[in-house]
Amino acid sequence: MDIDWETIIKVGGEGGVISLKGGTQENGKWIFSTKTNESMFDEEMATERSIPQEKPSTDAIKLIPTNRSSNWRIVDNWTDAIELLNEFPWRRLTPLEVHSDFKEKVWEEIEKGNVPSHRILKWEKICTP
């Protein structure tokens, strides 16, 4: 069965867009992966990656090759999902979208710090009712 991927967190800047995608498995458990369009972050290494459609295993982390230069890491818990995002400066970018079921969790991550003062209000607006 295919996973119906939804945007959990989407941030952007002059350099591109970073998204944390999530989907529920048949057992109702969420899995997560990142999607990037880093065309301006690093022009030489830029890739447009897409979420794989095959059903992933329930391993904590699984590498699913999508092309020679990139691998998809799919994780099955929130802590590991944030670790995927932490590979990028996501807290420092402009928040574009936060899934309604994850607003509280995202706000908890934002409160941990490393967010420029001019971004705090944008994060608060998008994460709180």
Results as ranks from 00 to 15, higher is better:
residue 15 G to N: 14
residue 15 G to K: 14
residue 17 V to T: 07
residue 17 V to K: 01
residue 17 V to N: 02
residue 18 I to A: 04
residue 18 I to Y: 01
residue 19 S to F: 00
residue 19 S to V: 04
residue 19 S to P: 01
residue 20 L to S: 02
residue 21 K to F: 03
residue 21 K to H: 02
residue 22 G to C: 10
residue 23 G to I: 02
residue 23 G to D: 09
residue 23 G to M: 08
residue 24 T to L: 14
residue 24 T to P: 05
residue 26 E to F: 06
residue 27 N to F: 10
residue 28 G to L: 03
residue 29 K to L: 03
residue 30 W to E: 05
residue 30 W to A: 13
residue 31 I to M: 01
residue 31 I to R: 00
residue 32 F to Y: 12
residue 32 F to I: 00
residue 32 F to T: 00
residue 33 S to N: 09
residue 34 T to N: 01
residue 34 T to Y: 02
residue 35 K to S: 07
residue 35 K to R: 10
residue 35 K to N: 08
residue 36 T to W: 03
residue 36 T to Y: 04
residue 36 T to M: 03
residue 37 N to Q: 14
residue 37 N to G: 13
residue 38 E to K: 12
residue 40 M to P: 07
residue 40 M to I: 08
residue 40 M to G: 11
residue 41 F to Q: 11
residue 41 F to R: 13
residue 42 D to P: 09
residue 42 D to Y: 12
residue 43 E to C: 12
residue 43 E to S: 13
residue 44 E to A: 14
residue 45 M to I: 13
residue 45 M to R: 15
residue 46 A to Y: 04
residue 46 A to C: 11
residue 47 T to A: 15
residue 47 T to E: 15
residue 48 E to I: 15
residue 48 E to P: 12
residue 48 E to T: 15
residue 48 E to Q: 15
residue 49 R to N: 10
residue 50 S to I: 13
residue 50 S to C: 09
residue 51 I to F: 06
residue 51 I to L: 08
residue 52 P to K: 05
residue 52 P to A: 06
residue 53 Q to I: 08
residue 54 E to S: 04
residue 54 E to N: 02
residue 55 K to F: 11
residue 57 S to D: 09
residue 57 S to N: 08
residue 57 S to G: 09
residue 58 T to C: 05
residue 59 D to L: 04
residue 61 I to K: 06
residue 61 I to V: 10
residue 62 K to I: 09
residue 62 K to N: 07
residue 63 L to N: 05
residue 65 P to T: 12
residue 66 T to Q: 09
residue 67 N to Y: 11
residue 70 S to N: 14
residue 72 W to M: 09
residue 73 R to C: 09
residue 73 R to K: 12
residue 73 R to D: 03
residue 74 I to E: 03
residue 75 V to C: 02
residue 77 N to A: 06
residue 78 W to S: 07
residue 79 T to A: 07
residue 79 T to S: 11
residue 79 T to V: 09
residue 81 A to S: 03
residue 82 I to F: 11
residue 83 E to Y: 05
residue 84 L to K: 13
residue 84 L to P: 04
residue 84 L to S: 05
residue 84 L to R: 13
residue 85 L to C: 02
residue 85 L to P: 01
residue 86 N to G: 03
residue 87 E to G: 06
residue 87 E to R: 07
residue 87 E to F: 04
residue 89 P to R: 00
residue 90 W to A: 00
residue 92 R to P: 07
residue 92 R to F: 08
residue 93 L to M: 09
residue 93 L to P: 05
residue 95 P to N: 10
residue 95 P to V: 15
residue 96 L to H: 04
residue 97 E to D: 07
residue 98 V to C: 00
residue 98 V to R: 00
residue 99 H to G: 08
residue 99 H to P: 04
residue 101 D to P: 00
residue 102 F to M: 11
residue 103 K to Q: 09
residue 103 K to Y: 00
residue 103 K to P: 00
residue 105 K to D: 03
residue 105 K to T: 05
residue 106 V to K: 07
residue 108 E to H: 13
residue 108 E to M: 08
residue 108 E to Y: 11
residue 112 K to F: 06
residue 112 K to D: 08
residue 113 G to I: 01
residue 114 N to Y: 15
residue 114 N to M: 15
residue 114 N to S: 15
residue 116 P to Y: 13
residue 117 S to T: 14
residue 117 S to N: 14
residue 117 S to L: 12
residue 117 S to D: 14
residue 118 H to T: 14
residue 119 R to N: 03
residue 119 R to H: 11
